[in-house]
Design a binder for these strands. Structure first.
Lengths: 201, 201
DNA sequence: AGGTAGTTTGAACGCACATTCAGTCAAGGG
DNA sequence: CCCTTGACTGAATGTGCGTTCAAACTACCT
């Protein structure tokens, strides 16, 4: 039923999605929505939560496979810009929900969780390389770059740009870490921070 | 009337905005919408075009005041992340339209113009510092960073983050240009490209 | 004054929607 | 074999929407 909702929003858009259409796709009656989700808004909220937890699962599973902090950063990048999130069917639905976020308290709460999770995942990993304040700073920039590439890719309707997007973010992060090394090397002699990760702060 | 539409979408959201509500705010009758814009969709498209040309004007006016290519890049950054675009009243309306883009051919056309304009403005300026292919690459990353910061700021509902967002993008661009200088200095002796802008390729 | 073209009105229309609810159906327990 | 519980149906209801259009109003010209 939630799957049918995703399908309908992806195909018809947010405002053109009706309960009758969702019921048709799910091969149930219209009345069943009220039985399980109280009303249409309840179904939509459940759908957004479903999308959000799908993404969270993708991130967690990649984080588990990651060893070094650098790999954990990459896990966040790859999960958020992975094929599953870029797939038109999913991406347009996210976008439709984002458009409603300012006017729906339920959606806003889910969005805050999404946003904070990405930041804290990135900050956790970046703290291995730099001071917490710098880590937060870079995490915000990285998160924005990820979301911006996702947004532009989705709006443009480009399907296959996913690997290119990941390369851009990867290069950005590597550049920032490289600059950190250079700065450290010029100061009182010290190893590049990410050759000996997780040893300070 | 277009102003009233912006106001209504900002306050109520896309799907809750009715012609009656717009007419009430504009202090006209509902029938007048049809007279000037054919139907509701025509009014919405005109509203999006209005927003788009407002932004374009802001960019052009800053570009005119800019001298060096570096200043032209900054003009794009400042115009897109300026207070006028971050103002909740405007930003939530943009967001609402973006959510409809995949399902409305008119909106999609306006979006393509917006997207390409930012890229070409950036590429034009960046070509002074690097090969066209590199310029396009960096332009995409910069544009994504701008849009990503805008998106996150708008979704989070933070009003005053505008100066911080601009700092992040500015720092990103400066870093990329700095790296270019470093690379050039290590190769066969050559001046940093942006000390002698616009002289090659 | 009369006429005309350009504006504006707002009630009427018909349609599409979310919600409701009385009722059907299937399964399991007593 | 009946009764209960939970899942599910779909027609009926009423509300709210965009659109239409005949009529009214305004300003300008002749």
């Amino acid at each position: 039923m939630i799957e049918a909702t995703i399908e309908a929003i992806a195909e018809l858009g947010f405002s053109a999605t009706t309960i009758a259409e969702i019921a048709r796709r799910a091969e149930v009656s219209t009345g069943l929505v009220a039985f399980y989700f109280r009303d249409k808004d309840g179904l939509l909220e459940a759908t957004l939560r479903h999308l959000s937890s799908d993404l969270a699962r993708a991130v967690v599973s990649r984080l588990r496979a990651a060893g070094s902090p650098r790999e954990r950063i990459q896990a966040v990048i790859d999960a958020n810009l992975g094929a599953s999130q870029f797939h038109r069917r999913i991406a347009t639905v996210w976008l439709a929900f984002w458009g409603q976020v300012p006017h729906n308290a339920h959606f806003r709460r889910v969005q805050r969780i999404y946003e904070r999770r990405m930041i804290s995942d990135l900050v956790d990993a970046l703290k291995a390389y730099m001071a917490p304040a710098d880590a937060r700073h870079l995490a915000h920039a990285t998160a924005a770059l990820i979301d911006g590439l996702w947004l532009r890719g989705t709006l443009a309707g480009e399907e296959p740009a996913t690997s290119r997007a990941r390369e851009i973010v990867t290069a950005f992060v590597d550049t920032q870490l490289l600059l950190l090394d250079l700065a450290l090397l010029r100061r009182p002699a010290q190893e590049p921070a990410h050759a000996i990760p997780r040893t300070h702060s």
